[in-house]
């Protein structure tokens, strides 16, 4: 049998506005053959953990557009650790270079800038999932 389909949750943490970018990402991951479980706006770390358990997600993609990433993304990673879920978290959005290292240190698997081309987005998700499957 072939590799099982990749199931990825897509969500926006916190209170900020629109989900246009997230929808674009959802479509391009679908077009790459992935199953995208779309959670949309205003999610919390807790609601994402609950969804990840029920959906048996392989990866979590978070979109962030205001300065919240330094607190929100690590909080997400910590909530997963508390729930003993080893699911890679990928952050997309405007993240200043100097913050990328901080996010990686906090356990974020990858950070994608707003201009990342489709192939890169797909590739980053695939690699994060492959890594988890081979170690898990």
């Amino acid at each position: 049998m072939t590799e099982p389909n990749i199931r990825i949750l897509l969500a926006k943490l916190g209170l900020d506005g629109h989900d246009r970018g997230l929808k674009v990402v959802a479509r391009l991951l679908r077009d790459a053959g992935m199953e995208v479980i779309y959670l949309g706006l205003r999610q919390t770390a807790e609601s994402i953990v609950a969804a990840a358990e029920q959906e048996d997600a392989d990866a979590i993609g978070l979109s962030m557009h205001n300065a919240g990433h330094l607190t929100l993304a690590p909080r997400m990673v910590a909530a997963l650790a508390v729930a003993e879920l080893e699911i890679p978290v990928i952050v997309g959005g405007i993240v200043p270079d100097e913050d990328v290292a901080a996010l990686r240190d906090a356990g974020v698997a990858a950070v994608l800038g707003p201009g990342a081309p489709a192939e890169e987005v797909v590739d980053v998700v695939r690699r994060a999932v492959d890594q988890r499957r081979s170690t898990g």
Binding site: N5, R27, R30, D31, A32, G33, V36, I37, A50
Partner: peptide, 27 residues
């Protein structure tokens, strides 16, 4: 999608505030 095998599963957002509690939703 019959072409790529991928899918966007968006039903959960309509059942939004319920994922807590003892409700189990699977797409």
């Amino acid at each position: 999608s019959p072409l790529t095998g991928g899918a966007i599963l968006g039903d959960r957002i309509r059942m939004d505030d319920l994922a807590g509690g003892d409700v189990f939703i699977r797409s």
